[in-house]
Design a protein around this nucleic acid. Structure first.
Length: 501
RNA sequence: GGUCCUGUGGCCGAGUGGCUAGGCAGAGCUCUGCAAAAGCUUCCACAGCGGUUCGAAUCCGCUCGGGACCUCCA
């Protein structure tokens, strides 16, 4: 089966065919670095990291562009609720770029914790003001933008009238029609400047207190909310590229506006496949500022948020996200995260042991059924990924394979039950899917040579004690280490292993 | 109000007509000095009502519930 993605634009699964194989261009909307990323933000970045990894696995040469939005209204986090006068005071005290710097670092740190591969290009909005201005000029020249009091707006109604004739109405992506919106759009600032309520800003005149401002043909101001993505995607991926990704909540208006802007400038819908991940919910509600239920990533990793009963490792969170298919909502709870934590540990412990085993090619399987079953499970992994990235099914199959590995380890099945070739194949495919595609890495816990040495020493002492049947000493070592979060396990062969909790 | 999505066992979550999803939790057994881990077995489902069909969690209708977008938002 060929690789298929669900394309939000056509509302169906489609076979993925790059415009210019083997090259693939992918644009994903990145963070606004005016605050710290939260659990909800983790989902698109992990989802599209897996898309990126999988495309690389398929042999494509992928240029992955993920922007950083560092222009616009910047206020110190947590101060947003204050009125405009007091937030003006915050801006006076603090350079916007100081915030940008701080939260960009935190964001990169979080991405690294999640083991996300860095994108090929990570452009900033402030670094592409010139490109954005040029694009706006083109839109005005073509008659789809107009100037009002130093701001520039996109004429959505005109665009819709003209492009409906080409079957590309405004709303083509989100499936809404303009008539509905003309009635329902809420009052915004400077509404009277617009010809129509649905028009959106391409460039905004900067009020006196606005620190982030740039010269433009229309006076000092700053770019509108949607133009940066159009400008940067065009610059680095061309007028038409393969994949545009982001969260479902960006579908409208952000991506819709991107399509309108790029279509005017480049005369085509910018991306062929539009991929949208669904939201992470908490008690059934989307995580977001307006709901006051945001768990920041740093709080998640150190367990400091009141709703959390414990800290969760970044890999646990990644695994939690990958246990579901990206287009469905995913409900957060401590119970669910704890389940993921245990499951991930079981998976990685089995995998780690198995990876270190050596097998000989060419041996014959004594249990042909098991041999065939293993081959089937492994072969299905790619099929599941090809079907719109069903990582949930991939994970499920990994857990089908685990009992065989553990049985091999505990000698419940003989090594020759399965052919050497099959074992080698399973090894290789598990590494491919667990490490390279799902991007899960072995969490070594405390990775410190001296600590490791001390634990090894305690294990030696405990082995001695056990051989003397001095169970008091033996249990003391095990229990006290357990209290410190280090679990000792007696293996079947008399050896002892340990894990960190 | 408009547009759209959704309702799966204690929890999370796959599954678009017929086959055990999977994980965690629970129960039993095996192994073990004990424990943990592991293995084996097992309990618990498809919101409700009606329809289509030989057969529906899966298609259709209605009812009830939940949610998203329409405003910066992953």
């Amino acid at each position: 089966m060929p690789l298929q993605f669900y394309n939000s634009l056509t509302r169906q699964k489609e076979v993925f065919e790059p415009l210019n194989a083997p090259y693939v261009g992918m644009y994903v909307c990145g963070p606004t670095v005016s605050g710290e990323s939260h659990l909800g933000h983790a989902r698109p970045f992990i989802t599209f990291d897996v898309v990126y990894r999988y495309l690389l696995h398929k042999g494509y040469k992928v240029r992955y562009v993920r922007n950083i939005t560092d222009a616009g209204h910047f206020e110190e986090e947590g101060k947003a609720a204050e009125d405009k006068i007091s937030s003006k005071a915050v801006l006076e005290k603090l350079e916007p770029m100081e915030l940008v710097q701080k939260y960009t670092h935190l964001y990169h740190w979080a991405m690294e914790q999640f083991n996300n591969l860095p994108p090929s290009i990570e452009p900033t909005a402030t670094g592409h003001i010139v490109e954005q201005i040029e694009m706006i000029k083109t839109i005005i020249a073509d008659g789809y933008g107009y100037v009002a009091n130093g701001s520039v707006y996109f004429d959505v109604v005109k665009y819709n009238d003209d492009y409906s004739k080409k079957n590309q109405p405004y709303g083509i992506l989100s499936g809404r029609n303009l008539e509905d919106q003309l009635d329902t759009t809420r009052e915004l600032d400077n509404q009277e400047e617009k010809k129509n309520k649905v028009d959106f800003a391409l460039w905004k005149n900067a009020p006196a207190e606005h620190i982030m401002r740039w010269q433009s043909p229309w006076g000092e101001g700053f770019p509108g909310w949607h133009i940066e993505c159009s400008a940067m995607a065009t610059k680095y991926l061309g007028k038409r590229f393969d994949i545009h990704g982001g969260g479902m909540d960006l579908q409208f208006p952000h991506h819709e506006c991107e399509i309108a802007q790029s279509t005017v400038c480049n005369h085509e819908i910018p991306a062929r496949y539009w991929l949208h991940n669904n939201m992470i919910t908490i008690n059934g509600r989307k995580m977001g500022k307006s709901y006051n239920n945001v768990i920041k990533l740093s709080e998640l990793f150190d367990g400091s948020h009141p709703i959390l009963t414990q800290a969760y490792a970044p890999m646990t969170v990644r695994f939690f996200i990958l246990q579901s298919q990206y287009r469905g909502t995913l409900d957060f709870s401590n119970e669910a995260l704890q389940a993921s934590e245990k499951a991930l540990r079981r998976l990685m412990e089995a995998y780690e042991w198995f990876k270190a085993q050596s097998f000989t090619a060419g041996t014959i399987a004594s249990d042909a059924t098991l041999d065939a079953q293993l081959n089937t499970w492994v072969a299905e992994l790619e099929t599941f990924m090809d079907d719109d990235m069903n990582t949930a099914k991939v994970v499920a199959n990994l857990f089908e394979i685990i009992p065989s590995i553990n049985s091999l380890k505990d000698k419940h099945i003989a090594a020759d039950a399965v052919s050497g070739n099959t074992w080698l194949h399973v090894q290789q495919q598990l590494t491919l899917f667990i490490e390279n595609i799902l991007g899960l890495k072995i969490d070594t816990g405390a990775n410190h040579q001296q600590l490791t040495g001390v634990i090894e020493l305690l294990i030696e002492i405990r082995k001695d004690a056990k051989s003397r049947k001095d169970f008091a000493t033996s249990d003391k070592i095990r229990n006290q280490l357990a209290d410190m979060g280090i679990q000792l396990k007696d293996e079947k062969d008399g050896s002892m292993s340990y894990t960190f909790s």
